[in-house]
Amino acid sequence: MNSTTQAKSLSAPSITRAAAAALIEAVHAAAEGVGFEVAVAVVDTGGHLKAFERADDAPFLAAEVAVDKAWTAASYRIPTHVWNSYVGNPQVAPLAYHPRLMAVGGGYPLIENGKVIGALGISGGTYEQDQQAAETALSSLGFDIPA
């Protein structure tokens, strides 16, 4: 490549369908162990839905919340529970009014070899239950759990 020529694209890693399906199964198992029904969303690095499933008795609002948690985690590449402290800052607080931003625990970026490959969002329990089930599922499949 000529040193004066600039690259015009980036190679973006993305979660596979198989890994997304495995995450959904792991989240359902973890949520069952905690004692709640869950909606699970997995998105790619652009926040586009890759896989989704809602348990029979999960609240219907949980479906939209799970997708938005995954979108938020993919967008900023940080867990959604971190946003609670951010939106308390008056200079950041206006972001809390963005219709898709979810400052509630249960959304995590999916990291493989130091690179974000997508994000996970779960909803259906309390924020503590959502976080616990997400972390259990991520850990069981060998994903890093960002703080």
Rank of each mutant, 00 (worst) to 15 (best):
S3N: 13
Q6K: 15
K8L: 14
S11N: 10
I15V: 14
T16K: 15
R17Y: 06
A20N: 05
V27A: 01
H28P: 07
A30E: 11
A30D: 03
V38W: 03
A39V: 09
A41R: 06
V42E: 11
V42G: 00
G46Y: 05
L49C: 07
R54V: 08
D56R: 04
D57Y: 04
F60S: 09
L61N: 08
L61A: 09
A63P: 09
E64I: 12
A66N: 10
K69V: 13
A70Q: 08
W71M: 05
T72I: 00
S75K: 04
R77C: 12
V82D: 06
W83D: 02
N84Y: 02
S85P: 02
Y86I: 02
V87S: 02
N89C: 03
V92Q: 13
L95P: 02
H98M: 13
P99T: 07
R100D: 07
R100V: 07
R100P: 08
M102C: 09
G105S: 11
G105M: 08
Y108R: 14
L110K: 01
N113S: 14
I117V: 15
L120I: 11
I122V: 15
S123Y: 00
S123D: 03
G124V: 03
T126K: 14
Q131F: 07
Q131T: 15
A134C: 02
S140I: 01
L141C: 03
A147Y: 06
